[in-house]
Amino acid sequence: MGAPKMTVSRTAGADVLVIVPARNEAANIDDVIADLRAHAGPCDILVVDDHSTDDTAARARSLGVHVVRLPYNLGIGGAVQTGFRYARRMGYRHALQFDGDGQHAADQIDELLTPLRSGLADVAIGSRFLAAGGFRGTGMRRVGMRMFQWLSRATSGIRITDTTSGFRAYRAPAIRFLVDRYPSDYPEVESITHLARAGFRIVEVPARMRERQAGTSSIGLKRTVYYLVKVSLASVVSAGRPRKPRRDEQARADARKRA
């Protein structure tokens, strides 16, 4: 730890790491990076290439951002967790997830970070439901989202409207927690439960999201059922797990120190 070499690639003064998980997003990555550079404010960008079969990593490198390429496919959770690991190692104060498919908007990053910077929360989640104009979704997806809302509330004790949102920002104590505990696939709903039960304060911030620009979503129709069952089971099981007060206290102590 702490060796000077390790901090070589962190931009002086930058305390925010934008984690961009990307798998086969060569068609989108240019726009995503351009958007971040134009609107994200001072930050370092880390593209985590989840072993793409296209040239996502090469394109990202040519744009001059930090790139980590996983030696094999770990899934979205494993990719984002790689970012957490990197953020912890490099000592960033904040890390945020910004998907590589172009569905998130970089000009909203500042708003997402505001509650963290002011010490109001450890985790901020961008919510489509709270955004002006709102978000409805259709059919099966809507039913699923309702179910997750209810499930998340039942297992975490807090009300999150957009439980599947991947647009999230974390403070260092939450990052340290997630390095050790973050589900590999479909991590969004489950991680809310883990974080809430570990005593981290979670807030939602309104956020618009775009339809994906190109390529296909990682969640195909046939995996939706698996998604529902897996997430439900995982959330319920982790709710039955005893809370860890020591982590909780640690997190609060950290929060007080930073505030």
Partner: peptide, 29 residues
């Protein structure tokens, strides 16, 4: 295994950075 893969990927990136200092590295943001 997952953890190992993540660490390997990060270390590889840091090693590349050291190499890149000899050329090819841009302002690296």
């Amino acid at each position: 295994n997952k953890r190992l893969a993540q660490e390997v990927a990060i270390l590889q990136k840091l090693a590349e950075k050291t190499d890149a200092d000899h050329g090819g590295a841009k302002d690296d943001r």
